[in-house]
Every structure is written in C-alpha cells, then in structure tokens.
Simulated scan of single mutants.
Amino acid sequence: MRMIIRGFFRLLRLVLTPFMLLSEKLTTPKAISRSPERQAEIDAATTNLALYEFRACPFCIKVRKEIARLGLNIERRDAQHDPNHREALLKGGGAIKVPCLLIKDEQGEERWMYESGDINAWLAREFG
C-alpha cells in the first residue's frame, strides 16, 4: 500500500511540474527599476547570498518571484539534483528543507534562513 501511495504522489508531481513552471514563467513580475549605480550596489550586496531550492517547489517559486520583483541577482543552488549543494545544505543549515537562503556577512559568518515568508520579508526589508 505504501508503494502505491508513493507512486501516486510521484506521478502527480511529474504531471504537475510542467504546469507549475509554466505558471511561474507567466506570472513572474517585472523587476523594479533602479538607477544603474543603485543596481550595481545591490548586485554587489547580493554576491554573498545563495538560494537553495528545488525547481518545482511552490515555496521556492514564491521566493524566486520575489527575487525577480526586486531585481536581485542571487545565486540559485539546486539542492534536489546536485549532491554537493544538497550536502552543503544539510551540513550548514541542518536540514534538507527548501527554500533556504544562505546569507554570508562581511566577517564570513553564515546564516541559514528557511521559510519562504521569512526569506521574502528579509529580502523586501534589505532590498525593497
């Protein structure tokens, strides 16, 4: 019975993934406009950020839309298919849970932020 349920949800994910990605592409907002100097400052500030994600995760899509809305250049790391990123997420953040934003400060300290709502609120506060 467990195998049937697991198979059902895998099939469901397989069927829904293209629709979720298409929906993301069609509904992603345009970036806010900034002066080139201000955008360069923000691009420099985002070099210490990385988003660990699964491509079709609805919460990751929510964060990617906020990143696009704010016009941020944040490195995206696939924790689903890349074993190195998956291991880094487990070691650094303590759990393989996405989305997770890795924030490195000037001293090299790392902070791992989970939860899409918290990530979006932090991004809006810092770069909005």
Rank of each mutant, 00 (worst) to 15 (best):
Y52F: 15
K104Q: 04
M1I: 00
L101F: 11
I67A: 06
R13G: 11
E75S: 13
E87D: 09
D105Q: 11
I119N: 05
A44L: 15
G7H: 01
A56L: 04
I5T: 03
I74R: 01
I67F: 05
G93A: 13
F59N: 05
S35R: 02
M20P: 00
E24S: 03
G71N: 04
E41M: 14
P99E: 10
R86H: 12
F127Q: 09
E87T: 08
I103V: 10
R76G: 04
H85G: 15
I61S: 09
E109I: 08
A95N: 10
L16I: 15
Y52M: 07
R34L: 12
D105G: 07
A95M: 12
A40W: 10
R125I: 00
R2N: 15
H81R: 14
L14A: 13
A40C: 10
L89S: 05
F54C: 12
I61N: 07
A45V: 00
S33R: 11
A121V: 04
C60N: 03
W122V: 02
T27S: 15
R13I: 07
M113F: 08
C57L: 10
T27K: 12
L102A: 15
L51S: 11
E109W: 05
C60M: 02
D43M: 00
L16N: 11
A121F: 02
S23R: 13
P83Q: 07
R13E: 08
V15H: 05
A44Y: 10
G128Y: 09
I119H: 02
E87H: 12
N84E: 11
L89V: 01
T17D: 13
E41R: 14
L12Q: 15
F9M: 12
A88N: 11
I67L: 01
T17P: 12
E24V: 01
D118S: 12
K97L: 03
L26V: 09
A31F: 01
A88G: 02
S23K: 08
R64G: 13
P36A: 13
A50D: 06
R77V: 04
L21E: 05
A68F: 08
L16C: 14
R34Q: 03
